[in-house]
């Protein structure tokens, strides 16, 4: 009796993902059926309409927007996150380390819409002062950097805490300096944990909606400089879902399906890495 109840709970929990995929697929089938994948790449522009024959559905600039914001922020945040973790584990006195960890956790708890709002009223005017128009790829990258920093810093720190004490003792016995110990011993030993954190961070950056929507300007174009406004896949869904009909709505579900696919690939990669660690 009990076991059946528990099994039912687990079945419900486990089937949510299937339901999500099922609904994304069924909703995107109409447009994939009579239009195919190719038009999302070859059409002249993104001017969707309820009828596939009238609209144009080129998702390329939007995908480029997503990739650009993600890549930019990950490139900045990986060193910052690593250094933050190193600070917590090896440089800060214990009290300071505890405060700093608490601060990072609080940073992780700030809602994304609040980040977006702060970006809109503080960061965007700041960028505008350097180079108009203000809402831009750069603003998006910066706000994403602050948002994923906690993910990467906390996982990297956990990985560094798991480095066996014996390695550190060995390094100390060899007379290595703190920097040499970090570079030669700690970081290689914590590599796979750090990598898992980075992948989680990438997933978060790809999926982030509100903050990006509020600071990126949302113009459909391939950016030529970091000061150009861009639109990402997630922002595109959030902006157009409210009034989308017919094939347009379907097209938005297709972009949801693409996002879902990306996330699945990332999860599998992360799992492979952590599995290799536990076997190695």
């Amino acid at each position: 009796m009990l076991i059946w109840g528990l099994r039912a709970c687990a079945a419900v929990a486990g089937s949510v993902v299937l339901l999500i995929v099922l609904f994304l697929v069924t909703e995107s089938l109409p447009v994939l059926g009579h239009m195919g994948w190719s038009r999302f790449l070859t059409d002249a522009s993104w001017h969707p309409a309820g009828d596939a024959a009238e609209g144009t559905f080129n998702l390329t600039p939007i995908v480029v927007g997503t990739l650009a914001t993600t890549a930019g922020s990950v490139m900045i945040v990986v060193p910052l996150g690593l250094i933050s973790a190193v600070f917590c584990c090896y440089y800060a006195p214990p009290v300071l380390a505890r405060c700093y960890r608490r601060l990072i956790e609080l940073l992780a708890g700030i809602p994304s819409v609040v980040y977006g709002f702060w970006g809109l009223v503080v960061l965007v005017p700041l960028v505008r002062r350097f180079e108009p128009p203000g809402p831009s790829l750069l603003a998006g990258v910066l706000i994403l950097t602050v948002m994923i920093l906690p993910t990467i810093a906390l996982t990297a720190e956990a990985a560094m805490m798991n480095v066996p004490r014996a390695y550190l003792h060995g390094a100390a016995a060899l007379g290595l300096s703190k920097r040499a110990t970090l570079w030669g011993v700690v970081i290689p030993a914590a590599k796979s944990g750090v990598l898992t954190g980075v992948i989680l961070g990438i997933g978060r950056a790809i999926g982030e909606t509100m903050a990006i929507l509020m600071v990126c300007g949302n113009i459909v174009q391939v950016p030529t400089s970091v000061f150009d406004p861009v639109r990402t896949l997630t922002a595109n869904i959030a902006l157009e879902m409210a009034y989308a009909m017919g094939d347009h709505r379907s097209a938005l579900f297709v972009s949801g399906l693409v996002l879902m696919g990306l996330i699945m690939v990332l999860v599998i990669v992360a799992e492979t890495i952590s599995k290799r660690e536990s076997h190695g």
Partner: peptide
Amino acid sequence: SLDVLAGVPSIVFGLF
């Protein structure tokens, strides 16, 4: 499936 669910972007939850 829970691992995947944890990574699903919130906007996809919105669509679903």
